[in-house]
Lab assay of single mutants.
Amino acid sequence: EDAPSSDDLEQFAKQFKQRRIKLGFTQADVGLALGTLYGNVFSQTTICRFEALQLSFKNMCKLKPLLNKWLEETDSSS
C-alpha cells in the first residue's frame, strides 16, 4: 500500500475535522470510539494533533486509515 503524501494527509485531516464537527463528535469521542471499534484508544490530544498536523508523518499514516474507517462507520450508521 502506498504511503499517503503529506498533501493527502493535510487534505484528509481538514476533511476529517469538518466531518467530525458536522457529525457532532468531540475529539475525545473519536479517541474513545476508536478504542471501542479497533481496540486502540487514542487520547483527545492525539486526535487534536492529528487534525493540526502535529504528529510525526509515520503516526499520521498510522492513524489515517483508522480515522477514515471510523468516518465510514459513523456515516453509515447516522
Rank of each mutant, 00 (worst) to 15 (best):
G24R: 01
Q18E: 12
K22F: 06
I47Q: 00
L37P: 05
S76D: 13
F12Y: 02
L9C: 03
G24Y: 00
L37Y: 15
T46A: 09
D29S: 07
T46N: 05
F57G: 07
E1R: 14
Q27G: 03
T46W: 03
V41F: 05
Q18V: 06
F57T: 11
A13Y: 04
Q18K: 14
S5G: 15
I47L: 06
M60S: 04
P65T: 07
T45S: 12
R19Y: 00
C61N: 07
L23N: 04
L32E: 12
D75Q: 14
Q27S: 05
D2H: 15
F57A: 09
N40R: 13
T46K: 06
L66P: 02
C61R: 10
E51Q: 02
A3V: 10
A52M: 06
I21L: 08
K17D: 00
I47T: 00
D29P: 03
D7C: 06
P4G: 10
M60I: 01
G35K: 09
K64H: 09
Q18H: 12
L71R: 03
W70F: 13
V30D: 05
T45W: 04
A28K: 10
K64M: 11
F16I: 03
Q27C: 13
L67W: 01
C61E: 10
S76Q: 14
R19F: 04
N68Y: 09
D2P: 15
D7P: 02
K58T: 12
Q11I: 14
D7A: 09
R20W: 00
S43Y: 05
R19C: 10
C61Q: 12
S56Y: 01
V41Y: 10
G35Y: 06
P4H: 12
Q44P: 14
C48A: 14
S76M: 12
K58Q: 12
S6T: 15
F12N: 08
S43V: 01
V30T: 01
T36N: 11
S77H: 13
A28N: 07
F25V: 06
K14S: 04
F12L: 03
F12K: 00
L34H: 00
K62D: 07
A3W: 14
L9E: 03
D8S: 05
S77E: 12
F42V: 13
A52E: 13
C48L: 11
L23T: 02
A33K: 10
Q18Y: 01
D7S: 04
C48N: 08
I21P: 00
S5C: 14
N68I: 11
S43E: 09
F42E: 10
I21Y: 14
T46Q: 06
F25T: 00
R19D: 06
T36P: 07
S56M: 01
L53E: 04
F12E: 02
K17R: 12
C61S: 08
T36F: 02
L63A: 02
R19E: 06
P4R: 07
Q11H: 14
K62C: 08
S6W: 15
K69F: 01
G39Y: 00
D7M: 09
L53W: 04
W70A: 02
D29K: 11
D8G: 10
T74L: 08
S77F: 07
L32G: 05
D75H: 15
N68C: 11
Y38F: 09
L67Q: 00
Q54G: 07
